[in-house]
């Protein structure tokens, strides 16, 4: 093919790809003062699991009578979220503490969610109100969001052959935006261990609690900085690493981890073609000077 055409082909291909990938550079949002959030005070939780029942009700998940949630045998093994269970309470026995500590687990509604940055069809979004929501209408079911979530939260309906969805806590988005009610778990908790409110207010409340009862809490608000901050916050009477929390996640928001790679893409797209074409031209020229004697020369691939 002639050289001019060749340049054109590569040029067009290159620029369109650069244009496509440079949009990936746009920074995601920063922590907003208006975000709603939740604060779980682990020193108050008694492991009654009523929040699990209320969550099942609110999300129309298969449920059992509320009395059956008193059964302590479920605590024998540590549980995680499942497609029919958006929140679970686990029990942790801690050295030098007569009482066990109970930990409620659910989506953390990250400020810069890993799940959203992983999704190739933008099925996850961080809402202006704070919760991270999932759109089942675009999801192709690759489950990369589940790989990416550092808190092992999203789950999948593996048993569904025709319309499987990713399932997770929504912080009762519709409940609080439309009905004006607090999220189901916060509403039912008899110990008021779960508080719903503006994230900024919750942080103040948490700091205040820790300051006024230094004997009751460790000085750490889990979720204030972890992976760039989460909208669900925890305070605890014992160090978080003893309660199954990952304390090695760092403070870098997950989207930052792939950003360098994604922003290198336009660079590769602009430099590579030049190098390759240079090399092509060079070898063409060399070939012209010394015609090939290879008998097997042929038009091909």
């Amino acid at each position: 093919m002639d050289r001019k055409k060749f340049f054109k082909t590569v040029g067009i291909a290159g620029t369109s790809l650069v244009a496509m990938s440079s949009t990936a550079d746009a920074r995601t949002r920063i922590v907003s003062p208006d975000w709603m959030g939740m604060l779980t005070d682990l020193s108050l939780c008694i492991g009654c699991r009523k929040c699990e029942w209320a969550c099942n009700e609110a999300n129309k998940l298969p449920n059992k009578p509320i009395q059956s949630f008193d059964d302590p045998s479920v605590f024998q093994e540590e549980r995680r979220t499942h497609a029919e269970q958006f929140t679970v309470v686990n029990r942790f026995e801690v050295d030098d503490r007569p009482e066990p500590v109970f930990v409620k687990k659910q989506c953390m509604h990250c400020a810069e969610p890993a799940c959203a940055s992983a999704c190739l069809v933008r099925a996850f979004s961080k809402t202006a109100e704070g919760p991270v929501l999932y759109n089942k209408d675009v999801c192709i079911g690759c489950r990369y969001c589940m790989i990416a979530c550092p808190f092992l939260v999203p789950t999948y309906e593996y048993a569904d052959a025709f319309s499987p969805e990713v399932k997770k806590c929504t912080m009762c988005f519709e409940r609080f935006t439309q009905q004006g009610e607090v999220p189901a778990c916060a509403g039912i908790c008899p110990r008021e261990a779960i508080t719903f409110g503006k994230r900024s207010d919750l942080l103040k409340l948490a700091r205040e609690k820790i300051r006024s009862h230094p004997d009751r809490y460790v000085d750490h608000i889990y979720g204030e900085h972890e992976v760039g901050g989460t909208n669900w916050l925890y305070i605890s009477p014992v160090p978080f690493e003893e309660l199954g929390f990952r304390t090695d996640l760092g403070e870098t928001p997950y989207p930052e981890m792939t950003r360098p790679f994604l922003s290198a893409v336009p660079l590769v797209l602009s430099i590579w073609p030049m190098l390759l074409m240079g090399s092509y031209m060079f070898s063409k020229k060399r070939e012209g000077e010394a015609p090939s004697t290879d008998l097997h020369e042929r038009v091909d691939s």
Binding site: A116, S117, C119, L120, V121, R122, V138, T258, L262
Partner: peptide, 15 residues
């Protein structure tokens, strides 16, 4: 879908 409908440009998998 990722080719024609919804573009998750922050995703490496989109690439």
């Amino acid at each position: 879908y990722p080719i024609v409908l919804s573009f998750g440009v922050t995703s490496v998998m989109f690439l």
